[in-house]
Design a protein around this nucleic acid. Structure first.
Length: 328
DNA sequence: ATAGCGCCCTGGTGGC
DNA sequence: TGCCACCAGGGCGCTA
């Protein structure tokens, strides 16, 4: 399940091979994976044909990430061709692979982007949950481009968006425009997290899955962070004390940074942009360890269902009873 | 407004 | 061995 560390690892592994390189040709093998196209012109063509036809001649300028979304900024060959943003979401089993053009085609390859370098950027996804989107950069909020780290295209945009820009909802997945702060960024503070948790009654796990609260966390690293913080995932978020939120904040950052160092977690599907698996799995304390002894206390790891997700917990290290606060 | 649930989609697994 | 029900889950759209 690509979460923040996996998506960032894919970006880092692909970026050096595409930046500055021109797109030669695009082939859509399964048009379903195109989630939206908002580029100028070609209004009479279906979105998938516009996706194929507009890209050749464009050059990769820079790459960024926002939550679990990958963003690539593209510049056209002429002054009149507007900058574009290619957005990729891998969802569960999506892969973005940079291979030699003559490399054998893996099963479930849905998009082929041939580069002038002789390489090919390919999107494949067994379950076809993943999506690609293509936008004119001018139609995306400047704040989003900045937060994703697309500094050059953001600078090129010049002035902040006018009121008119904000009134029309940008095209694309609604979630992209409602993302909470980056968990490793300056806006994600212990106080922010505490305030967000306090106003919710849902289980703390469900609140952390909500990308509007904090962007980029998924099932694996939420279970791991809650274990590290000694918090039961089913606890109503609003019952967490300020000290709990502080520990959770620290645990989230800690586990994400370790996972980035280890280049992500591979169970079955995930590999980076060059096909290399991640090495975080061996460091996981609870996720995928149901029925095995807790590495801290020896108690058997339980698997529960919370917020519709398989949830792994050591009920000794993460006592639910801790939720009962002495009322003041 | 929030919480919860079904849906998408296919390969792998476990039971009989 | 074969068959099939079931599970994995991110994000979205719907309902209460």
């Amino acid at each position: 399940m690509p979460e923040l560390p996996e998506v960032e690892t894919v970006r880092r592994s692909v970026a050096p091979h595409v930046t500055g390189v021109e797109i030669a040709a695009v082939a859509l093998l399964h048009p379903d994976v195109i989630g939206g196209v908002a580029v100028p012109g070609m209004a009479s063509l279906p979105a998938t044909e516009r996706f194929e036809q507009v890209l050749p001649g464009y050059r990769f300028i820079e790459s960024g990430r926002r939550g679990k979304y990958l963003l690539f900024a593209l510049a056209g060959a002429t002054e009149t061709s507007p900058p574009l943003i290619l957005v990729v979401h891998l969802r569960m089993t999506g892969r973005l692979l940079l291979v030699a053009a003559e490399a054998p085609l893996l099963p479930h390859t849905h998009v082929r982007i041939a580069l002038a370098s002789g390489d090919e950027l390919r999107f494949s996804d067994v379950r076809r949950f993943g999506r690609l989107y293509l936008y004119e950069a001018a139609r995306l909020p400047l704040a989003l481009l900045r937060a994703a780290g697309l500094s050059m295209v953001a600078a090129g945009r010049g002035r902040a968006p006018t009121g008119d820009d904000r009134q029309t909802r940008p095209p694309g997945p609604p979630g992209l425009f409602m993302l909470g702060p980056e968990p490793l960024g300056p806006e994600f503070t212990p106080d922010y997290l505490a305030a967000q948790l306090l106003r919710r009654t849902a289980p703390v796990k469900a609140v952390l899955l909500d990308q509007r609260v904090v962007a980029g966390l998924g099932n694996i690293y939420i279970d791991e962070a809650l274990f590290r913080a000694g918090l039961h995932p089913a606890r109503p978020a609003g019952t967490l004390a300020a000290a709990d939120a502080r520990r959770l904040h620290a645990a989230i950052r800690e586990v994400l940074e370790e996972a980035l160092d280890r280049r992500g977690t591979t169970f079955s599907d995930y590999v980076d942009g060059r096909g290399v698996p991640g090495e975080m799995r061996e460091l996981l304390a609870v996720y995928g360890r149901a029925g095995l002894p807790c590495r801290r206390c020896g108690r058997t790891i339980q698997k529960l269902r919370i917020a519709g997700r398989g949830t792994h917990v050591c009920e000794r290290c993460q006592p639910f009873a801790g939720a009962v606060r002495t009322s003041s």
